[in-house]
């Protein structure tokens, strides 16, 4: 049932420049790695889409980069605050892969911790723009870390099933290296459940809603 559920914030802790927001799960299903939730942003008109980062027992955790009024408000939440949560939404990663390799860039590492757990801690390559940003790498098990001017694409071994999330240029570069990679895209979203037609991306020459067709897309 598509219902926004009020939940209590457990904590909002800094991880490098990002914030790990932990929320009491209640009866909400965590869903599959790569799926996302719409988080009510305090004092804003619209919620914000966030991949599920971790699903510890009784909790849902989201890694958030404070880049605008909604994410700033989410990062400023405190234990005991209540916010509405809608999800899980979208399509997650396919887990039936033989040799997984997780690839993440910046805040794009957000879905990787939960993905890693579900895959049993496969190798991962994560890249960041600075050492401070790279403090978040601690969330991803078994991760090789690169920092700009070194990029993740320089550290991806061949012959793996790549599951990636990060900035668009990174995803484009990964797709060139690994044509069958599963890529988790993002787009501005108002609703997250197919109602607003705002989150379209170009897919095989047509505009498709990312929340309905993705956010994880297998490269053509």
């Amino acid at each position: 049932m598509l219902r926004r559920e009020p939940r209590s914030v457990l904590s909002a802790e800094a991880v490098g420049p990002y914030t790990l927001l932990r929320v009491d799960r209640g009866t909400i299903e965590p869903g599959e790695p790569g799926q996302f939730f719409m988080l009510e942003a305090p004092r804003r008109v619209l919620p914000r889409p966030m991949s599920l980062c971790l699903a510890p027992r009784g909790e849902l955790a989201f890694l958030i980069d404070s880049i605008g009024p909604g994410t700033r408000a989410l990062c400023a939440l405190e234990a005991g605050d209540r916010i509405g949560i809608l999800g899980p939404l979208g399509n997650g990663f396919r887990l039936d892969v033989e040799r997984p390799l997780l690839v993440g860039g910046g805040i794009g590492i957000a879905p990787l911790p939960y993905l890693s757990e579900r895959l049993g801690g496969p190798p991962a390559v994560v890249g960041f723009r600075s050492a401070w940003h790279a403090e978040a790498a601690v969330l991803v098990p078994n991760a090789e870390v690169v920092i700009e001017p070194t990029y993740v694409t320089e550290a991806i071994p061949a012959g793996h099933d790549v599951l990636a999330c990060g900035p668009e240029p990174m995803l484009e570069a990964v797709r060139r290296l690994a044509p069958h990679a599963q890529l988790a895209w993002e787009a501005p979203m108002a609703c997250g459940y197919g109602a607003c037609y705002g989150c379209v991306v170009e897919l095989e020459g047509r505009l498709e809603r990312l929340c309905v067709k993705g956010p994880v897309l297998a490269a053509a």
Binding site: R44, V45, P69, M189, Y197, V200, L207
Partner: peptide
Amino acid sequence: EGNAPVRIAETEVGMLNAIGLA
């Protein structure tokens, strides 16, 4: 198809859409 993205935006008092009759 409607307009090219970005076609939604939030404001302090509502939202904007430029979906374009997709």
